[in-house]
Nucleic acid binder design. Structure first.
Length: 833
RNA sequence: GGGCAUGUGGUGGAAUGGUAGACACGCUAGUCUUAGGAACUAGUGCGCAAGCGUGGGAGUUCGAGUCUCUUCAUGCCCACCA
């Protein structure tokens, strides 16, 4: 065996062998239990970055560990390959996005292989290939048939720089999630998926996701934004038969209404405006329309509004109050109209103060005897007792919510209402590089879905990428005109493509049956492999991809395509990879190129390091010294083994015969403790950082043990023990340092790949210490430590403690109040005086 | 404004309510070397010491980094959602 560790040589060799032997292929039929380990698939942007390396290494180690534990592991990879960067590159360089994408995939595939990842490449999935997007289109049609895909005219988020609309989830702080430019509002007719129909299920089923972090679950719950309240309908005084409905979560404050606000975009706003107010209202609305999302969302903005001139009547009190329009009412939420109770809502309070609208107190704190509206400094939004509220006076406001709503129900002017913040998912994109929406517009029949047998609707290639202000797809001379699938007459195709998040909402299902050309996947196979047992990826998808995928799964279940209702059983959201405390980015110039690390240290060092310093969920600070440290450690392990092998001290045919010498017994114990600890650390939340510290501890222990021996005096027993320890270490490390372990394994004389081996097992009796350090405390403070036999019982431990000279002196002359014994660990003597 | 995380040596981080700082990085000495940024050995929370130490303050407990309350700081998510 070579004395020095040459990672690149070893790694290239084994990568070739694994490829030639198809070592990581997963059969569908196996008697072993299944385990589906999944990384979020990459966008083929050009090169892997360290975030990828971290993500895929974590999943790879999990996959290999599970395989060694006897699971039939599915560990696939694919490409989220539709999307704007390819199209932009095409426009810039006049290239073909398909070619650009293919080249990136080829390069990144090479990098993934260099990392030694155990993917089943036969199941590779690429979303921009017709054999994939055919099924994306097919699934769209299933949703369409179910009434879950529909087209409507709506105010949508428009990103001018990307030249396309965006879903709500893709607008971050009023800016585009991709390019960061300010998002505008536009009125367009667009395709939506009815995700709102699943709002309640998506919320409820979060409880089923025991293996998800609470942070992600609360983010989703907040995004869905369920609230419970009431709808009240108010008659308009000036217009017979016209009503304004409002949604409120505070029906208990209904007697305190002093005005009502409708959004500038409210559908009946023109009817509600009197001729005298028309001009001011028109101006206000025009202004609101011009405003960008950013301006509207600005937190320090002063509220503005104008009166409409009309009035509503409060059915509870008979009081009249004026109607206003103000942009703090949102047309998309609730009914687009708000009942304003300035005394008990901070926003209404601000508005009322600014425009001198009246205040009326209807909730008082339980302690207060009276409450003066004129002197209010801010809205009272806490709980309390109803006042000025007729028959509800004296009632607790929490009870009044129900009672008051009930009165509205009985009176026919209101109802109980549950409201969600979640909006339908806008999936149309005015872009080229995506899956075409399989819809045609027939001159006679209107909107018609393409026939399933005509799929895929191929993305045209005869397009001009140099056009500005419109989608390149519209320049295709052959794409637009087609025959109606129903009547055969003239029709035109939908020119929009689908949001790429549609493609990524089902890719993990396709892995179950990646090559199927008859169906999107076989139902039995998808039911067998799914749900994913462990999903690993970035927290940035907490809402977007993960919510869409959950919706897709439920919708496809209802379409009868599959039989489960949650796609991802366990989710690990890995932290970011930082350098010098901030996120790696090209603009900051603090990126680390994986290729350079492979070249200088090898993939095993990269894998070891990226797992070593932080638990997976936390951010990880990349340091060059850390990489160096890991490389040195691997050299140290290599030297330990090569030395032993070359001196004939290690062999694969070892046998441990008890009893052993004291030192050998200790080493065996250390190995068993390591096996137990490492197994538990991986099983328990994948704490790879402590796993790696245990690799080091075990290595240190073996070195220390061998340092005590003179190699010439090595007995057969020593050789056996040494062999066992080294063999165990190499095996325990094999999921992480995949190449080095494989190389050593063969150097030890094994024929089979180490990755086909079973995971190490420990013997509970051997993992037990023979001596324990008894901690003796007085009044909870550590005062002494005594070595005692492992088998000592509680009474004996107490005696040891009291008899220790140190303790004897300290408790001398004091009264022992009580003594607490923690078996095999600690004695605490409580004294007084 | 609301929600969720996280606060431990010079640094990354360990620690089923029971020895705080495992394992590393860094640093300091030394050994071997022509030399070393290689390898090995010893040391390394603070304090001269008694002791003190897990952001601050309270509490529960024989015992709190860990549980409860409160407060501060940082990060992330959501945000005029009625």
């Amino acid at each position: 065996m070579k004395e020095a560790y040459f990672p690149q040589e070893i790694e290239t060799k084994w990568q070739h062998t694994w490829e030639e032997t198809n070592a990581f292929h997963t059969p569908d039929d196996s008697t072993k239990p299944k385990y589906f380990a999944l990384s979020m698939f990459p966008y083929p942007s050009g090169k892997l970055h360290m975030g990828h390396v971290r993500n895929y290494t974590i999943t790879d180690v999990i996959a290999r560990f599970k395989k060694m534990q006897g699971f039939n592991v599915l560990h696939p990879i694919g490409w989220d390959s539709f999307g704007l960067p390819a199209e932009n590159a095409a426009m810039k360089h006049g290239a073909d996005p398909a070619k650009w994408t293919d080249e990136n995939i080829a390069y990144m595939t090479k990098q993934l292989k260099m990392l030694g990842l155990s993917y089943d490449w036969e199941r590779e999935v690429t979303t921009c290939k017709p054999e994939y997007y055919k099924w994306t289109q097919w699934l769209f049609l299933q949703l369409y048939k179910k009434g879950l895909a529909y087209k409507k005219e709506a105010a949508v988020n428009w990103c001018n720089s990307c030249g396309t609309v965006l879903a709500n989830e893709q607008v971050i702080d009023g800016k585009c999630w991709r390019c960061d430019s300010v998002v505008e509002k536009k009125y367009l007719s667009q395709w939506f998926f009815k995700i709102t129909e699943y709002a309640e299920q998506l919320l409820q089923d979060l409880d089923k996701l025991q293996g998800w972090g609470d942070n992600v679950k609360t983010m989703q719950a907040n995004w869905i934004g369920k609230s419970q309240g009431a709808i009240f309908r108010f008659k308009v005084k000036e217009i017979e038969g016209l009503e304004v409905p409002v949604y409120t979560t505070r029906p208990d404050t209904v007697h305190g209404i002093t005005y009502l606000v409708v959004a500038p975009e409210y559908k009946d706003i023109e009817k509600l405006t009197t001729p005298e107010n028309k001009q001011a209202v028109e101006e206000y609305r025009a202004n609101a329309r011009k405003m960008t999302e950013i301006e509207r969302l600005s937190t320090d903005r002063v509220k503005t509004g104008v009166p409409l001139g009309t009035h509503c009547i409060n059915p509870f009190t008979g009081e009249e109050f004026p109607l206003w329009t103000a942009d703090y009412a949102l047309v998309e939420y609730g009914t687009g109209a708000v009942m304003a109770v300035p005394t008990h809502d901070t926003r209404d309070f601000d508005f009322a103060k600014k425009y001198n609208l009246p205040l009326k107190v209807v909730i008082a704190p339980e302690s207060a005897s009276s409450y003066d509206a004129d002197n209010l400094k801010e809205a009272y939004t806490e709980e309390g007792i109803l006042v000025n509220s007729n028959e509800f006076n004296g009632m607790k406001n929490t009870e009044a919510k129900k009672a008051i709503t009930q009165k509205a129900v009985d009176g026919g002017f209101g109802e109980f209402k549950t409201q969600y913040r979640l909006r339908d998912w806008l999936i149309s994109r005015q872009r080229y590089w995506g899956a075409p929406i399989p819809i045609v517009y027939c001159d006679k029949c209107g909107i018609v879905p393409e026939k399933e047998e005509n799929l895929p609707v191929m993305l045209p290639t005869d397009v001009d990428f140099s056009v500005v202000g419109k989608s390149p797809i519209t320049t295709s001379p052959t794409f637009k005109d087609t025959a109606c699938p129903v009547c055969g007459g003239h029709a035109t195709r939908e020119m929009d493509t689908m949001d790429t998040f549609v493609c990524s909402s089902w890719y993990y299902m396709r892995y179950a049956d990646a090559k199927n050309s008859e169906k999107c996947f076989d139902k039995d196979l998808v039911n067998h492999w799914l749900p994913v047992d462990q999903y690993v990826g970035g927290i940035e998808h907490a809402i977007l991809h993960l919510l869409y995928s959950r919706f897709f799964t439920k919708a496809l279940r209802d379409c009868g395509v599959l039989d489960f209702d949650e796609p991802f059983k366990n989710l690990l959201t890995q932290g970011m990879v930082l350098k010098d405390g901030s996120k790696m980015s090209k603009s900051k110039g603090n990126t680390v190129d994986p290729d350079e690390i492979f070249e200088n240290y090898g993939a095993d060092t990269a894998r070891l390091f990226i797992l070593s310093d932080s638990p997976p969920a936390r951010d990880f600070d990349w340091s060059d010294a850390g990489v160096e440290g890991c490389y040195k450690f691997l050299n140290r392990v290599w030297r330990l083994v090569s030395d032993g092998v070359n001196k004939g001290l290690i062999s694969k045919d070892y046998k441990i015969d008890f009893p052993l010498s004291r030192e050998n017994d200790d080493l065996i114990r250390t190995v068993h403790i390591a096996i137990k600890g490492i197994t538990n650390d991986i099983s328990n939340d994948f704490q790879f950082n402590t796993v790696i510290s245990k690799y080091r501890e075990l290595t240190n222990a073996i070195y220390e043990w061998s340092g005590k021996k003179n190699e010439k005096s090595f007995t057969d027993e020593d050789k056996n023990v040494f062999s066992f320890a080294v063999t165990s270490l190499v095996k325990l490390m094999s999921p992480v340092t995949v190449h080095m372990s494989e190389e050593i394994w063969h150097e030890l004389g094994y024929e089979r790949s180490i990755h086909e081996e079973n995971w190490c097992e420990w013997d509970e009796n051997l993992a037990k210490a023979s001596k324990i350090t008894l901690v003796v405390q007085i009044n909870g403070k550590v005062k002494d430590k005594i070595e005692v036999d492992e088998g000592a019982n509680d009474e004996e431990l107490k005696q040891f403690a009291i008899l220790s000279p140190k303790i004897k002196e300290l408790i001398n002359g004091k009264e022992i109040v009580k003594t607490i014994v923690v078996p095999k660990k600690l004695v605490n003597i409580v004294v007084r005086g």
